[in-house]
Simulated assay, not measured.
Amino acid sequence: MSDASFLSLDKLSLAYGKTIAVKELDLDIRKGELLALLGPSGCGKTTTMRAIAGLMTPVSGRITLDGADITRVPANRRNIGLVFQSYALFPHLTVFENVAFGLKLQGIGGDELTRRVDAGLKSVGLTAFSGRKTPDLSGGQQQRVALARSMVMQPKVLMLDEPLSNLDARLRLEMRTELQRMQKETGVTMIFVTHDQVEALALADRIVVMRDGAIEQIGTPEEIYNNPVSSFVADFVGFENLFAIRNGKLVAAGGIELDPAGPLPDAAGLAWRPRAIALGAGPFTGTVRGVSFAGGTREYLLESGFGTVKAEADVSVPGYPLNAEVAFDMPISAAAPLHRFG
């Protein structure tokens, strides 16, 4: 465990039966950090969360929290809060009773119970709803009850499994702000699991991108967004035009080679976001097979001699109709170099 680590996973391997889901994972998480485990279904992020929470036993490796080895410590003695995607609230209990439930199991009652529940409800803005039953609340309010119920237990680590996936777009934005505020005010170490790159980029101090039970890249949101190390990460965070580099040429997904419009860097591949594709002039041509209005931009699907290219242009620029032939460029300077491809 590094000196700066509060929660450490050391060579952690996890399995379902004989199927290895996570293999020899190393990860150090700092105290007070808001960390995202990001990746597609089946990448091992939820499995890793379950192991940290004590809901599954590792095949090998060690989990250390605040200097103590908790690898074999039962879940109810780890002091780790867990907020499920389904919220897991009791519909027959009031908001106050839901938040108080865990405290009562610990034998806390009287003024101390009331004080901690009231403080928890205040922290999520639900003081006025303490007497309501949870089915009478909106999705965002139910999410806040689940957060308050975990926070009143004063956990060392708070873990959230796809915390915003059940909410509509407006509520997701509100809850992102709420989660950030709560985490910064309390200083709790928070880990959340998500497949939504926008959510991870907006919330996290650091992002751990996972693939096939291993860590593909760790970095700040800015590092992950601007400097993906592999084609997998690039594709996951919105670089929709990916080309391998082989023998001084760009190689498209179908294996077609093309001469680049400039010298190539020492990299395994290059990735362009749609907005980095320059339309109207350049060495390449494509046919517009799709165009959609996206507020301040128009998004284009171009059919070229080497495959599909996705481009984006400001709406202030005259648009191209379907089936129009368009010249375009993929400036090397606008591409992200990739260390690993495939």
Score class of each variant (00 low, 15 high):
residue 67 G to W: 09
residue 74 P to E: 10
residue 275 R to G: 05
residue 118 D to I: 12
residue 38 L to S: 07
residue 137 L to V: 02
residue 119 A to D: 15
residue 35 L to Q: 00
residue 26 D to N: 15
residue 5 S to E: 05
residue 196 D to G: 02
residue 150 S to W: 01
residue 234 A to P: 04
residue 122 K to R: 15
residue 147 L to W: 01
residue 43 C to K: 09
residue 49 M to K: 01
residue 267 A to N: 10
residue 33 E to P: 00
residue 5 S to A: 14
residue 82 L to R: 03
residue 235 D to F: 07
residue 182 M to Y: 09
residue 290 G to T: 03
residue 56 M to C: 13
residue 52 I to Q: 03
residue 114 T to K: 15
residue 154 Q to A: 11
residue 211 R to S: 03
residue 158 L to N: 10
residue 232 F to Y: 12
residue 247 N to C: 04
residue 282 G to A: 08
residue 102 G to T: 07
residue 192 F to T: 01
residue 263 P to Y: 13
residue 23 K to C: 02
residue 166 N to T: 09
residue 312 E to A: 13
residue 190 M to I: 04
residue 170 R to I: 02
residue 42 G to W: 13
residue 12 L to N: 02
residue 103 L to S: 11
residue 123 S to V: 14
residue 323 N to P: 02
residue 63 I to Q: 08
residue 160 L to P: 07
residue 228 P to R: 09
residue 259 D to Y: 13
residue 300 Y to V: 03
residue 341 F to I: 04
residue 165 S to D: 03
residue 21 A to V: 11
residue 220 T to W: 05
residue 130 S to V: 14
residue 250 L to V: 14
residue 30 R to F: 02
residue 73 V to G: 05
residue 152 V to G: 04
residue 46 T to A: 07
residue 267 A to T: 11
residue 126 L to Q: 14
residue 337 P to W: 09
residue 202 A to Y: 01
residue 100 A to I: 08
residue 197 Q to E: 02
residue 330 M to G: 09
residue 133 K to C: 06
residue 81 G to Q: 01
residue 185 E to D: 15
residue 66 D to N: 13
residue 139 G to F: 02
residue 190 M to C: 11
residue 227 N to P: 01
residue 173 L to W: 00
residue 235 D to E: 15
residue 114 T to D: 15
residue 255 G to Y: 14
residue 31 K to I: 03
residue 91 P to M: 08
residue 308 T to P: 00
residue 228 P to A: 09
residue 22 V to W: 07
residue 179 L to M: 11
residue 116 R to H: 14
residue 11 K to L: 00
residue 49 M to I: 07
residue 263 P to T: 15
residue 214 A to F: 01
residue 165 S to E: 03
residue 311 A to M: 03
residue 313 A to W: 04
residue 66 D to T: 07
residue 101 F to Y: 15
residue 218 I to M: 11
residue 249 K to G: 08
residue 44 G to M: 12
residue 282 G to W: 11
residue 56 M to D: 09
residue 101 F to N: 12
residue 136 D to K: 11
residue 58 P to F: 04
residue 227 N to H: 14
residue 303 E to K: 07
residue 245 I to W: 13
residue 88 A to K: 10
residue 33 E to R: 01
residue 124 V to Y: 12
residue 100 A to R: 03
residue 241 N to S: 11
residue 128 A to G: 12
residue 225 Y to T: 03
residue 138 S to M: 02
residue 187 G to W: 11
residue 171 L to S: 08
residue 142 Q to L: 04
residue 221 P to R: 02
residue 104 K to N: 13
residue 279 L to Q: 08
residue 289 R to L: 03
residue 131 G to A: 15
